[in-house]
Every structure is written in structure tokens, then in C-alpha cells.
Amino acid sequence: MSSPTPSLPSPMPRWRQYWVLTKPRVTQLAVFCAVIGMFLATPGMVPYPVLIGGIVGIWLLAGAAFAMNCLIEQAVDAKMKRTSWRPSATGEVTPFHITIFSIVLGSLGMIILWNFCNPLTMWLTVATFVGYAVIYTWLLKPATPQNIVIGGLSGAMPPALGWAAVTNTLSAEAWLLVLIIFVWTPPHFWALALYRRDDYVQSGLPMLPVTHGERFTLLNILLYTLILIAATLLPYIYGMSGMIYLISAIILGLMFLAYVVALFISYTDDLAKRTFRFSITYLSLLFAALLVDHYFI
């Protein structure tokens, strides 16, 4: 009696292949931060055309940038367990089709932002696209272990994009929000890079845990977390938020610091993974606290 032939996994539906290329979970967090920026920019309600146009336009351009990222890192992704399943890495979606997909998404996003928000928001979002897809992914990521620090500005821009969509300007408050995400990015990403370091060794990318080792990376995570906690106090010090936000920022900061200190004292891959996941929760709750404070004090 012959043994049954093992069933092969079902191929990913075509629509889902393209959806995956936009890195929807990362895009969702970016758009969430942009929406918070919109609401913080006005004492009242954001006009619905601006709100909807901003969400859709920023989402489309972010998705275009992530699709281009997948294209540029196609060969690298194929070497890494974490990313080898992506349609770009498996070849299920060709470079030509990824390029066309990215161009279409980006063009639609530009048109929507220009018409429903303002040219400043469109150009800032395009610059963010270029900063992430070209400067970070293509130039910095394969060149230096400080890639996530130097290239972090593009990933930190969403709240400024939201702010600009409403006000057609970039004030100091918008840049404070950018600063928070900019400082949050290294400890967030390096926690991931630590428990995925074998993947990065395989990929050949010079990530900090690969080039400088575990202890040095942990020290940098700790230092950046302390800087982050200080940076999150600036909205209160500057006067753009009140006690609800301040208390939330302190509590969330201490929780994040507890993860990082535990990681520094006794590293495990599991704890690094939990630290990485909490960092996402941390940022989401921090920005939610800004929103609650803005409307309820």
C-alpha cells in the first residue's frame, strides 16, 4: 500500500499576493500615526474630505513604498526565513508587475493627496516614499549597521504628514511627534534583529547584532529607550498635551523600560520577541493617549 502524497500548500490568491507586498500591518501603524497627527493639528473635527483623503492617500503611497522595498530586497528576502514566503521573494509576482503596482499605487496616492489635502502633504509623502524605498532600503540598509538610525526619519514622518494635511504647515508640535517615532524606531527594530539575527547573518545585511554582537546591541536598545522616555515628555513640557498624556507616557515608558532592562540583564529570544511586540503596543497606546488628552482636557 503506497503512502499518501503530501498535499502542497494552496497558492496565495493573486489579490493577496499584492496585498502582502504593501506590508499591511506596518502600513496600518503608519496611517494610524498620521491620523493622530491630523486630529492633534486642530481643536475641532478634521474635515471629512481631508480625513478620508489623507488616510487613503497616505495608505496608498506607503503601500507603494513597501512594495518597492520588497522589489529591491527580493534577493535578500529569499535568503531569510522571516521573509522568504513573500510573493516577491518566491517569484510569484514578477519585478515588472511589482514596479507597475507600486507606480499605480503611488500615482493614485499623489492625486488623492493633492486634491483632498494639499500639495505640501503630497510632496512630503513622496519624499517619505523616496526616503524609505531608495535612501534607506537601497543605499543605507546594505551599507551600515546604523541604517535604522540614519534612515529612521522616513519611518517617523507619518504624524507630520497628517499634521500637514490639516494645516498645510509643519509646526514644532508636528516635529515633536516625528522625534518620538524617530527615537522609538531603533529599540523597536533592534529587538527584532536580535531574535532574527541568524536570518540577518544569512542575508548578509550589516545589522547591529550581526556586526557588533548581542551585548552592544542590548546596550544601544537600553540607551535609546531612555532617550525615548525623555522625548515622550516633550509634548507636555512644550504645552501641547496635559496630565492624561504625561501620566500615560510615564507609565508606558516604565513598562517599555522594564522589558528592555530584563532583556539587558538576561537575554532570551523569546523575551526579545515580546519586547518587539510590546514596542508596537507602546507606540499605539502613546499616540492614543495624545489623542484622548487633546480632546478630553
Rank of each mutant, 00 (worst) to 15 (best):
V50K: 10
G131T: 09
A231W: 00
I148K: 07
F296G: 07
L192F: 12
S203G: 04
P158L: 10
G44M: 04
I181T: 04
D270I: 04
W184S: 05
R16M: 14
A249H: 00
W85C: 09
I58Y: 08
P119M: 11
V76G: 06
Y195T: 13
W163S: 08
H294C: 03
I100Q: 08
A64F: 09
G44H: 07
W15Q: 12
Q28T: 14
L177H: 06
R274L: 14
Y132R: 04
Y267V: 01
H97Q: 12
F129W: 12
L153F: 07
S284K: 09
R14G: 00
P119L: 15
Y132S: 04
W138A: 12
D269H: 03
L60I: 11
D77N: 02
P11A: 10
V210L: 09
M1V: 11
F96E: 14
P49G: 06
M12W: 05
V260N: 09
T137P: 07
T137A: 11
D199W: 06
I112F: 08
W163C: 06
A174F: 01
Y238T: 06
W85G: 15
Y282Q: 05
S88E: 04
V130I: 15
A34D: 02
S203Q: 05
I148F: 10
P9L: 02
L226W: 05
I237E: 10
K81I: 06
M243Q: 15
T121S: 15
V31W: 09
T121H: 08
H188K: 03
I103C: 12
V261M: 03
S171E: 13
H212C: 12
I221E: 12
I297W: 15
P142A: 13
P186H: 04
I112Y: 11
D198F: 09
A249L: 10
D293N: 10
L283I: 06
G109Y: 00
A231R: 06
A191N: 08
T128H: 08
F129L: 15
T169E: 12
T144E: 06
L208I: 08
L271S: 01
L140V: 14
W59Y: 01
L139A: 15
P159Q: 09
M12Q: 06
Y236E: 11
G131H: 07
F287H: 05
I297L: 15
V149A: 13
L223A: 15
